[in-house]
C-alpha cells in the first residue's frame, strides 16, 4: 500500500476526496493557526508573573461587543455554508446513484471474509479479486450476517454493507496495480483480519483473468479429495466442478492461486496451510473454521489436493 491514500489517490473518486480534503484542511488549518496565534499572543502580552500579581491592577473591564460577536458568527457561518455546498457536490460526483445499471461485481461480507461474485461471468471467488483498469466498475455490496464496511483507501471512500439491504460503490482505478482493502466497521472477534486484495488489470489481462476463473478443474481422484469429502468440508466450502457448492465459507475453486490465507493473515504456502488445517485458531483465533483434529496423513493429503486448485 502507498504511504498515504490521500496523496497517492489512484482513482477519480479518491482524487475528488483528496482535493476536497486538501481545501478543507487548508481552511481549517488557517482557522486553527489564527486561534493558536491569538492564545500565544495572550500568553506573551497579557501574562502576569506570580511575583507581579500583587502590584498589577485589574485591567479594564469589558463586557462584550455585539459587533465583534456578530462578525464571528457570520464569518464562520459563511465558511460552513461553502463547505456544505462542497459536500453536496462531492457526494454527487463520488457516489452517483446506480440507476438501473446491473452490478459488475457483488461483494458479500461474511464474518470474517469476503465473497466475490461476478454475475455476468458466473465467477465466484473470495478475498482476492480483480477489476479492469481505466474503467468504471459497479460493485454491489451485501452482508450475510452483521454490518461490515467495504474500504479500499486508495480507490474509493468506504461504504457500509448492511444485512437485509443492498448498497453500491464505484471503482475506477487509473492504472493497473494492487490495492489493499479492509473491513472498516467493527464486526466481531476477527474484524482486524477481514482484509482483501484487489488487482487492477489492463483490459486484456482482466479478460484472461476472468477466463482463468471460469476454468474449472474436473473432479479429482486424489487422496485429499476423499478427505475433503469425508470430513464434510463441503458443508461450508465450495469447489466448482465438484459436489461442493456451499457458500458459508470461502470458495476454494482457485484456492492455490491466492496469495494469502484467512483473509490476509499469513502468506498462502504449504507450511501455513498445514498449520491452518491443524489448528485454525493458532493463525486466526476465533475464526469460524473449526478444528477437525485431522491426522497428519489427512492434512498432508488435503494440502496436496488444495495445492492443485490453481
Amino acid at each position: 500500500m502507498q504511504l498515504c491514500p490521500l496523496i497517492s489517490a489512484a482513482s477519480p473518486q479518491a482524487d475528488s476526496v483528496a482535493t476536497l480534503f486538501g481545501w478543507v484542511l487548508g481552511v481549517c488549518g488557517c482557522i486553527f493557526l489564527g486561534i493558536w496565534l491569538a492564545t500565544a499572543i495572550c500568553s506573551r502580552r497579557f501574562r502576569v508573573h506570580p511575583h507581579e500579581e500583587e502590584s498589577t491592577p485589574d485591567p479594564k473591564q469589558i463586557y462584550g461587543s455585539r459587533r465583534l460577536e456578530l462578525i464571528w458568527t457570520v464569518i464562520p457561518a459563511i465558511i460552513v455554508g461553502v463547505f456544505a455546498v462542497a459536500a453536496i457536490a462531492g457526494m454527487q460526483t463520488i457516489l452517483p446513484p446506480m440507476g438501473d445499471q446491473k452490478p459488475d461485481i457483488i461483494v458479500t461480507g461474511h464474518q470474517w471474509w469476503w465473497e466475490i461474485h461476478y454475475p455476468e461471468h458466473g465467477v465466484v471467488t473470495a478475498n482476492e479479486f480483480a477489476i479492469p483498469a481505466g474503467k468504471k466498475t459497479l460493485v454491489q455490496l451485501e452482508s450475510a450476517d452483521v454490518i461490515h464496511s467495504f474500504w479500499i483507501p486508495e480507490l474509493a471512500p468506504k461504504q457500509d454493507m448492511i444485512p437485509g439491504a443492498s448498497r453500491h460503490i464505484w471503482l475506477e482505478p487509473y492504472e493497473p496495480g494492487k490495492f489493499s482493502g479492509v473491513c472498516a466497521e467493527f464486526c466481531g472477534t476477527q474484524h482486524a483480519w477481514m482484509r482483501f486484495e484487489i488487482s487492477s488489470l489492463a483490459p486484456e489481462e482482466f479478460a484472461s483473468w476472468i477466463a482463468k476463473q471460469k476454468a474449472v478443474a474436473a473432479a479429482s481422484t486424489m487422496e485429499g479429495a476423499k478427505v475433503f469429502d469425508e470430513m464434510n468440508c463441503r458443508e461450508c466450502h465450495s469447489i466448482q466442478g465438484t459436489e461442493a457448492t456451499a457458500n458459508v465459507a470461502p470458495d476454494l475453486t482457485h484456492f492455490a492461486s491466492r496469495e494469502t490465507l484467512a483473509s490476509g493473515v499469513v502468506p498462502n504456502n504449504r507450511e501455513n496451510l498445514t498449520q491452518w488445517l491443524q489448528d485454525p485458531d493458532s493463525i486466526k483465533p476465533g475464526s469460524h473454521m473449526p478444528n477437525f483434529n485431522l491426522s497428519g496423513t489427512d492434512i498432508s493429503a488435503l494440502v496436496a489436493y488444495l495445492e492443485t486448485l490453481r
Binding site: A14, V17, F83, A87, I94, S149, P153, P157, K158, A184
Partner: peptide, 12 residues
C-alpha cells in the same frame, strides 16, 4: 461534516 471526507476517514 463534509460528507465525502467522512466516507474516507470514518471508522479509521
Amino acid at each position: 461534516a463534509v460528507v465525502p471526507i467522512d466516507w474516507q476517514v470514518t471508522d479509521s
